[in-house]
Nucleic acid binder design. Structure first.
Lengths: 241, 241
DNA sequence: CCTGCTACTATAACGACGTTATCGAGAACA
DNA sequence: TGTTCTCGATAACGTCGTTATAGTAGCAGG
């Protein structure tokens, strides 16, 4: 609650809050949200339950910090996608990145976009952890990647003249909907949900936005190659253990 | 757990399980998921906590029954949409219906599609409440409306020849993504998320699937009229209190 | 050295929760 | 009437989030 427990060094801080957040993320991935208890995360971190309350204020704030960490990881995943001359390929690569992050910790993704962690509690949310527009800095860091890619797409003239925010909202809705339904096992009838739903739907959306089908199809393949090159290059460097 | 507490009368059964489910739904809508406790739903139903365990087995099963009731309401909402000669208009009306159900009880919608209620617990899910394909009968009842509309769309020849299941998955993903992001306040920048995101994106998806933009636009307006006629005709008869 | 202060943590406790054991009320039936 | 069963109320147990209390370590000044 007071400071971060570290005097210097920004990458991979080894402070107590960091240990609590990472232990919570690990419990979330291994045992689901029902395993997140004050005593559980404390003992998994080698600490007492008081550490949770001194550094975060309670379990609710811890969970919110964990969800925010999820957006930080999404931001880092988006940062690995290079900016090419094909905005739709970039968007496809970001879609596959989002799916990778979601599948690495489905419960964390559920926490990031669920309602229970936002306004469920009685907080007036006028605190300092919510800065300018009601969303956390980590969230906006990830969102600007999407918004900038959509802005590049509109300014390229490849699709019709329309608001970049609307394009971003549609792209985001399509990816988020696909991922959520896949995580909830609603795409069990598809052997390869990416090849059968996510990517064809992206091509359809691009065509609906005004792109040519051939170019959209080519961007889909370019985006898949972009994703492969990025993920193969870093090869589980994001896994912390 | 044993019977339904009623001897006859299928519509609006007044048994104890029904009272518990409706009390839970009401608490969910008014105070969020954190208000769902055994003592809370019991006292809200004028009963003791034992009623929950006699009829459901525990809070987890109650919540699952509540989520299933959500699909029952979605099924009933879809049943109110008539089958016209314009499948895309029908799909637009169903999309608006889904958004209406979701906004009537956002936390219930979150429960229906979240991960926490499915495989979070340690159940092997080989029970009898999951019948044929891993989904509840109520879910499949709602889903067939979507699947049949997509089958009508494909067989109409209006879009390209493609698998109806893929069309259904894409339609579902798009609507579910839009609704989820809107419920999580991620569309706060849009004054009218329906007119600015949901409906234009539906037109784009229809165009991407192979429809003409003019016909898709006309179906969008026809679907909106269809939705208005249905909802204005029943006018809060679904609200149980 | 001791003293006071700060930052943080462990221990123990309190109230609330999910769950269960036990028992009583009422119906069905012989 | 007696038996059995269903069902729900009461009370209890263990766990949870949270808090009060007390303790440890480091540091400044004497």
């Amino acid at each position: 609650m007071r400071n971060m427990g570290r005097t210097s060094g920004d990458p991979t801080p080894d402070g107590v809050p960091e240990r609590l957040v990472q232990a919570t993320i690990r419990l979330l991935a291994e045992q689901g949200p029902s395993a997140i208890k004050a005593r559980t995360v404390a003992s998994a971190s080698g600490l007492s339950t008081m550490a949770v309350y001194h550094h975060f204020g309670g379990i609710a704030e811890l969970i919110r910090a964990v969800a925010d960490r999820g957006f930080t990881e999404l931001d880092r995943a988006f940062s690995q996608v290079p900016v090419t001359e094909d905005p739709i390929a970039d968007l496809f690569a970001m879609a596959l990145m989002t799916r990778r992050v979601a599948r690495e910790n489905p419960h964390l993704y559920d926490l990031m976009f669920g309602l229970s962690t936002r306004r469920a509690t009685y907080r007036p949310l006028s605190d300092s952890d919510v800065r300018s527009s009601g969303r956390s800095p980590a969230f906006r860091g990830a969102y600007v990647h999407l918004a900038e890619a959509c802005a590049r797409l509109v300014s390229s003239g490849r699709i019709g003249q329309q608001e970049p925010e609307a394009v971003a909202a549609q792209s985001w809705s399509y990816v988020h909907g696909c991922i959520t339904l896949e995580l909830a096992d609603h795409f069990a009838e598809f052997a390869d949900p990416v090849a059968q739903v996510l990517l064809p739907m992206g091509v359809n959306l691009a065509v609906g936005l005004g792109d040519d089908r051939e170019r959209a199809q080519a961007s889909h393949e370019a985006g898949a190659r972009l994703y492969d090159s990025v993920t193969r290059g870093s090869e589980d460097q994001a896994v912390a253990e």
